[in-house]
Structure formats: structure tokens, C-alpha cells
Amino acid sequence: MKSDYKGIWVFAEQENGKLHQTVLELLAKSKELQKHNGEKITAVLLGADVAALADTLFAYGADAVLLAESEALREYSARPYQKVLTELAEKYKPSIILYGATPLGRDLAPRMMVALDTGLTADAIDLGFDEDGVFYQTTPGYGGKILAHIVILERRPQMATVHPQICEPLEPVNGAKGELLVENLAVEGDAEYEVLETLPAEKSGESLTEAKVVVAGGRGVKNEDDLTMLRELAELLGGQIASSRPLVDNGMLPHDRQIGQSGTTVTPQLMFNIAISGSVQYQLGMQKAKCIVAINQSEDAPIYDIAHIGAVVDYKKLIPALIAEIKARRQ
């Protein structure tokens, strides 16, 4: 019975005893949901030697913390985590389970979908209850021209992975207390999966997230010569080259250069968007840039909805002129 399921669960992703930032965001979002359905917010914390994190979870809005500790859960691996979380969900029957759309969350949640035989919405950019009182998850569809409300009508729990940074964590209430539920479950490590080592990523340039200036190219950038023009502008401005999805899909740039929902989020002072139409997914990755410049021949491109400066022109004419102009001014 649907009505047997009550409570909002937040999967409290942690690594090496440190909570992932999205957990705090999900707790804040859960508070909004709670205003509508009045259900208890429980943070579900799996790991080893992580009990101390419960206070942080209470401070950021959890009514309860469900704690399952085991040596087998110290380091994440999919099957032991799936087993424990499934047992807990079957015992407590929450109506909603939220996961951060992080590499770990997106590894675990699809397995939970199968284990609990329920629905899972991927990488939601908003959550709420609609006019019929139905819990919905918003996702961009069809290349981002359209948003969709996804619903899980009959099965429970209703699950979603939620895009990072869609809301701000609440102000922590230090010393806040809640209900601590400790579960002692027998779980073994996965003998068929092993993390051998973890290394810092090799980057193809300076980190995009720190860049003060970003020059991004899109579908209209057709070849290496076009890209070289963009690189020259980026270099001149002390910035980084980046792109929307097509240039990564076709292999012109590596994945760490992709801006957007399935790439990196950037917050530069100056953001050039060259031959980029500006789908919802792309805008999620750059809308907080301080000065947004859009250059696109199509005047109804969605990027102009958020651009501060627009130029409806062929970038192959404008960019060389701009490079020459900047060079001239610096002489």
C-alpha cells in the first residue's frame, strides 16, 4: 500500500568521514518538501567511524539520522551499499529517497531502483509538489528546450538523484538534536570489487572551475582552425577554453572542458559563449558567470535569455576583429 510509506530520506553520502556538499543541499530541499507533506526528514548514513557526522546532519535540518556502520561500508562499493540501503528501506518504508547526482550517487541509485522495484528520476534540477499534490521531479528534456515534470505515481519509494547546487544549505543550527537510530546489520565486503588506488586527476589545462575568464565554443565551431581562434582569444584574456556538449562528443575537446549539467559548473567574471545555443543543461553550468557574452547568428537562441551582451553575427568575423582590437589597445 502506497499509504504505508512515510518519510523523506536523504542519502548522506560521505567519503573518508567527510559529507558531500550535496547532502546539505538535499536537507534544505527536504525542508521545502516537508512544508507540504509534513513527513519526517531522515538522513541515512552508511560507513565506518562516521557517527560523529550525525550532529552535522541534525544541524543542517535532519529530524533523524539512521546510522549503519560496518567495516564493509568504510569505502563505497555498490553491492554492499545496495544491500544495506535496501534492507533499511524495506524496513522503514520511506515515501521519498533523494541522492546527490554525484559519481557515487549515480552509481548506487540505479541499483536501488532495481532492488526496490521502483522509479528513479535522473539528475533532477528541481523537486516539489504540483497542484494535484503529486511529488514531481523536474528534468530538462529534448535537448533542453523543454522541461518535464517526472512523477512516480504508484510505486514507493519515489526516488531521484538531484543535481548539485540547485539550492543553498540552510544556516546550521549548532547543537541541534534529533533522533539517532542505530542499525546493526550484518554485511560483508564485495569480494568481486576492489578500489586499488585513488589519484588526483590529470587535467588538460588549468581547472575550469577557478577560471576568471572562460571562452566556450559550441556546435558552430567546426574544425581546429575555428578552435584555434577561440584559444587565441582565451589566451589573450588569460582565460580557459571550454565548450558545450557537441565539441566533446565529437572528440575535439576532452570531457573536462565541457560546461553544463553533465559537465563542469563555472563561475567566471567573464564568459564568452560562441556559437552556443544555450540549452537548459548548458545554462546550468554557467548561469552564475558575472558577465555573459553571447555570439550566435540565430537571434532566438536561448543563450540570449541570460546574456548581458549579445552579438547576432558570424563569430568568425567578430572574433578576429575583437582579437585585433584588444591587441591594439594593449600596445
Partner: peptide, 19 residues
């Protein structure tokens, strides 16, 4: 279990674009 309940256009934001 999941289905699309409604589709809609993203809200236009009112950034004043200087062309």
C-alpha cells in the same frame, strides 16, 4: 514506474541583453 506528467517551456529570464 516513472512517467512524464507535464512538459513546459523554461521560464524566460529577463536579463536585459545589450545587443
Amino acid at each position: 514506474p516513472s512517467s512524464t506528467k507535464k512538459v513546459f517551456e523554461p521560464e524566460k529570464r529577463n536579463t536585459d541583453t545589450q545587443y
